[in-house]
Structure formats: structure tokens, C-alpha cells
């Protein structure tokens, strides 16, 4: 029972940064039709920026959050630059060209990160209130994991509110459904697209910042999530934020539980899920009907 609780909390804590990255990715795809292959690189950049800002100090919680949002803002700007310089010219060029452009962007960002941040590993300490473990019964749980879960829920709620209850959210949904008609109603789709790109990248950057105390901030970090968040959007359905949340938690939990109960399978759990979803419901668990059409 103890181990189960520990596994569940670990799984959810792993799933949250994954959700943040995947939600940004799926939002960008849903609205712009762009598969942002470079998304993992934005995650890495966010972690690097955050690590440099902290310079190895353990901060108080408010400062920690402030810097994390700061890192996210920097990545948002990086995202807008990428969108303007790379993707804006390629919207009508089809998926293959966009994929290649995103891949090229990823390589460029990786090279840039080596130039700017070097090859050493950056160490990001947890914020001071969350350095140790809390005990739930007799089970030790890192306090920071609980914080990340809470932060993830706040972001998820904020995202839901933005998309479903705000004027901007209405425009985003309209452009995601039918870009041409939205434009014909006067919606400035290119601006909405830029905003969505900024938001999506900011989410990835925030995920990098929040995740950084838990993993090494170093070269190769972008690859950490690359496979996982692609798996998440396949399972949850491209374009669905709820799908991203559900699938991220599912993937996190599955891996965590397998490590406890069937360690030999722990690396394959993800792929087994993908096989099932593709066989039974190839559009993803949360997407209605065939994939979203764009015009």
C-alpha cells in the first residue's frame, strides 16, 4: 500500500511537466496545424534560462515562481521569433515541409544552447520550503513533487479558463476549427496564431523551469521528453488539451506503477498504450471523429 501511494504520487509528479509540454505542443498543432518538432528544445531552453537566473541559489517560493514565469516569458519571446522567422512563411506548404522546418529549428536551437550555455550540467536547487520529504503515513514523498502537482493543476485550470471562458479563447477555438472562416469574420488569425505559439512555447519553458530541480539541466535534456510527449499527444489526441492532461497522467502513472510491479516492462508501458490506442481509437481518446480539418 505504501509503495502504491509512492508510485501514484511519483507518477502524477512525472506527468505534470509532461502535460505542460504536451499541452503547448497540442495547442500549437490544434490552432496552427504545425507539428512543432522543436518543442523539446524550448523545454530545454526554459530550464537553462531558469538555471542561469538562479545561479545555484535556493530561493524562497515567491522568487522561485517569479523566476520560473520569467523564464517562461523569455521562451515565449523565443517562440514568437521562431514563428515569425520560420513557420509564418510555411503555413500553406503542407505537413512535410513544416515538419522539416521544425526539425531544422530544433537543431539550430540545440546548437545555440551549446554556444550560450556550454556543455556543463547546471544544478537547480529546490525552493527552500520544499527541499525535503513529507510523510504521508509512513511513506516519504518529496515535498517538491507535491508542489509541482499543485502548480500543474493551477496551470491546467488557467488554460481551461483561457480557452473556454475568455474572448481570446473563443478566437483561438474558432481559428483552430476553421481558419479561413474565422478570418472572414474579422479575426486576425495571424496574430492569434502568434499568440498561441507564444503561449505554447511559454508552457514548454515553464515546464523546463519547474522540472529543472528534478533532472540534470544539460545537453540532451530535450530528448528526455521528446518521445514521451509525442506519445502523450497520440494517446490523448492531437489538438485536445484535456487529452494531453489525461494522457500525461496516464503515461506517468503507468511508468511509475510498472517500475514497482513489473520493472522489466517499465520502458515499454508507454508503447503498449500507444498500440492499444491506435488499434481501438486512432484519433486519440479525446478527439471526436476524424482528425481536425483545416482550411
Amino acid at each position: 500500500m505504501n509503495q502504491l501511494l509512492s508510485a501514484v504520487i511519483n507518477g502524477v509528479a512525472t506527468g505534470v511537466p509532461l502535460f505542460l509540454v504536451a499541452s503547448g505542443f497540442t495547442l500549437i498543432y490544434g490552432v496552427m496545424g504545425v507539428l512543432n518538432f522543436a518543442h523539446g528544445a524550448f523545454f530545454m531552453f526554459g530550464a537553462y534560462c531558469f538555471a542561469v537566473m538562479l545561479a545555484g541559489q535556493a530561493l524562497s517560493l515567491p522568487l522561485f515562481l517569479l523566476y520560473a514565469l520569467g523564464a517562461a516569458a523569455v521562451i515565449a519571446v523565443l517562440g514568437v521569433l521562431s514563428e515569425r522567422l520560420v513557420f509564418a512563411r510555411l503555413y500553406n506548404s503542407g505537413h512535410m515541409i513544416n515538419l522539416l522546418a521544425a526539425y531544422a529549428l530544433m537543431l539550430m536551437l540545440i546548437g545555440l544552447s551549446i554556444l550560450i550555455f556550454g556543455t556543463t550540467t547546471y544544478h537547480v536547487p529546490r525552493p527552500s520550503p520544499f527541499r525535503g520529504a513529507v510523510h504521508i503515513g509512513t511513506v516519504p514523498v518529496p515535498a517538491y513533487n507535491l508542489f509541482v502537482i499543485a502548480a500543474g493543476l493551477v496551470v491546467a485550470a488557467g488554460l481551461w479558463f483561457l480557452l473556454n471562458k475568455s474572448g481570446l479563447g473563443m478566437k483561438i477555438r474558432a481559428v483552430a476549427h476553421d481558419r479561413t472562416t474565422a478570418r472572414a469574420l474579422g479575426v486576425r488569425a495571424p496574430l492569434v496564431g502568434m499568440g498561441v505559439f507564444a503561449l505554447g512555447c511559454a508552457l514548454a519553458g515553464l515546464a523546463g523551469a519547474l522540472d529543472s530541480p528534478m533532472i540534470s539541466v544539460a545537453q540532451g535534456m530535450d530528448a528526455t521528453f521528446a518521445i514521451q510527449f509525442f506519445v502523450v499527444v497520440i494517446i490523448g489526441g492531437l489538438g485536445s488539451t484535456w487529452g494531453a492532461l489525461f494522457a500525461s497522467l496516464l503515461v506517468g502513472l503507468m511508468e511509475s506503477l510498472l517500475v514497482y510491479y513489473a520493472p522489466a516492462w517499465s520502458q515499454y508501458g508507454m508503447y503498449i498504450l500507444v498500440v492499444f490506442v491506435l488499434l481501438l481509437r486512432p484519433q486519440g481518446l479525446f478527439v471526436r471523429g476524424p482528425a481536425i480539418t483545416h482550411s
Partner: peptide, 28 residues
């Protein structure tokens, strides 16, 4: 523009469909 294939936004309510345009018109 009223296209021949209608092109309603499926997950927006009718009210939201209208609200989208209202905001833009006001700003014009």
C-alpha cells in the same frame, strides 16, 4: 460572408459565434 458550406464552429455555442463578431465590430 455566408459560405455555401455554412462552416459553423462546432464547439462554440451560437451565442459565442455571435459574440466573436460583436467584439470585433465594436472595435471598428
Amino acid at each position: 460572408w455566408v459560405p455555401d458550406d455554412r462552416r459553423i464552429f462546432p464547439t462554440l455555442t451560437v451565442r459565442e459565434n455571435l459574440q466573436l463578431v460583436r467584439g470585433i465590430a465594436k472595435r471598428q
